[in-house]
């Protein structure tokens, strides 16, 4: 019987170990997902940032970069691109800016999150300097121009001629993170 006991313990130990490993694997999927996004440009995540090595400018081709702005939830800032659309040669550094104004009566901090459509083009857009690299804080009524320096990699696939770079502005002013349940009516009861 002791021999059976040892066999049980061996099986249980292995299985408990593998379920703990799988729990860890569940969490490992998060960094794996980021690596996966880098390679495939999944979900329009712009991952190439920082100073770009000089690229040869491809004058024969112009790509139109469309800039759009979205305010998330009840973000009251005025937030829009200075130039809606720029035609630029791949390989040439582009420069533009976004305007942000805090019309409310108190200081607020915001975080801009970029996203590229078509997602396939995300891997070819390189942001040299962008206001989305760090949080932006504006006092009451303050307005600010936020620079954006970028370059489009010349070996962008030929069938892509228009890229949309969209920024979503999130309000991350630290305050009691009141959950949104107040929004759902409390009355879970039947209507009759």
């Amino acid at each position: 019987m002791a021999q059976l006991q040892r066999k049980h313990t061996k099986v249980v130990r292995n299985l408990l170990l593998s379920s703990v490993l799988m729990f860890g694997f569940g969490f490992a999927l998060v960094p794996l997902y980021d690596v996966f996004c880098d390679i495939t440009g999944l979900n329009g995540k712009v991952t190439r940032t920082g100073p770009a090595e000089p690229m040869l400018v491809d004058r024969s081709r112009t790509v139109s970069l469309q800039l759009t702005a979205v305010n998330n939830e009840a973000m009251p800032w005025l937030f829009e691109p200075m130039t809606a659309e720029m035609n630029i040669h791949p390989g040439m550094t582009g420069q533009t800016a976004f305007i942000a104004r805090n019309p409310t009566g108190k200081t607020m901090i915001a975080q801009a999150v970029p996203s590229v459509a078509p997602a396939e083009a995300a891997a070819y857009v390189q942001k040299i300097n962008c206001f989305c690299f760090e949080r932006q804080s504006l006092e009451a009524g303050q307005q600010q121009e936020m620079p954006l320096l970028f370059v489009i990699d010349p070996d962008l696939p030929d069938h892509i001629s228009k890229i949309t770079l969209s920024y979503t502005l999130f309000d991350i002013t630290p305050q009691l993170q009141a959950s949104h349940y107040a929004e759902q009516p409390q009355t879970g009861r039947f209507m009759l």
Binding site: L15, S18, S19, V20, M22, F23, F25, G26, F27, L29, V30, S179
Partner: peptide, 18 residues
């Protein structure tokens, strides 16, 4: 054994987010 821990992982991530 392989997937219930992953479900536990995802709800734990939700818990940490909330």
């Amino acid at each position: 054994i392989a997937v219930m821990p992953v479900l536990a992982g995802v709800v734990t991530m939700m818990l940490m987010d909330i």
